[in-house]
Amino acid sequence: MTKMSRRFFKGMIYAFLIFLLMLSVVPFYLVMINASHSSFDIVTKLNLWLGDALAENYRTMQTHVNIWRGFANSLLISASYTLLTGYFGAFVAYGFAKFDFRGKKMLYGIVLASMMIPSQVSIIGFYQLNLKLHLLNTYWPFILPGIASASTVFFMRGIITQSIPDSMIEAARVEGCGELRIFNRLVYPCVLPGIVTMCIFNFVASWNSYIGPLIIVSDSRKYTMPVMISMIKGLYLTNYGAMYLAIAISVVPIIIVFCILSKYIVNGMTAGADK
């Protein structure tokens, strides 16, 4: 009986997982499949298998934009941004998690509040700022803010509080380690799984960011992927096939990044929660 019910229970779990799997994968699959269909097919039929318009869509796409260039541009921005968030997110979080100083509460409040500002209108001020800094048409305005990634600080602060005992830091101090060295050699490696997790999300967020690059970058050779996709979309349906192809291409690198980095999360996981 118990064996039967346990098996039934396990079966239910798998059914649930497979149900969620279908929900997650089907629309994603449709995007991939649509990339190989003509625009007219896409709007008129539910396509479930590969079509024959892939080459055509590729040609259309390339006449509108140089997608590989956009790919390289986006990669440059996102990789740099992500590395900065990964290091400085933990760096700043460590300061908030393990030190007491005057104004800490208020300063941390500013960190949190900085996430709450709607970006749509402040983009006008952002443009003027970058104009004054002579950073228009460069990628710095999208890379450097990685140093001030509030959500990463927020997340890493929790992780550091949870997983780094003060005694560990004290011990290192007693041994004469400098503060920076304690962070780099001791704290940083310990919270690496958390950092990697954040890096994945930061990479995706940066990879998909649209309105900032659209407004700051005017040189079309420096356009990023999302701007190019929006360009292909344009007003008219004639470009749907090419648009889906561009989306499909834009998704590939994130999947790769995810696959590489998710190993780190899993390693961390088994170390902590294996029974």
């Binding site: 700043v92 300061g95 030190f99 100083f101 300063l107 001030a148 503060e179």
Partner: peptide
């Protein structure tokens, strides 16, 4: 929390 306060400012400085 370890009270080496000036280092606290050092660590949070990049953000600000």
């Amino acid at each position: 929390t370890v009270s080496k306060s000036r280092y606290g400012y050092f660590f949070i400085a990049p953000f600000f």
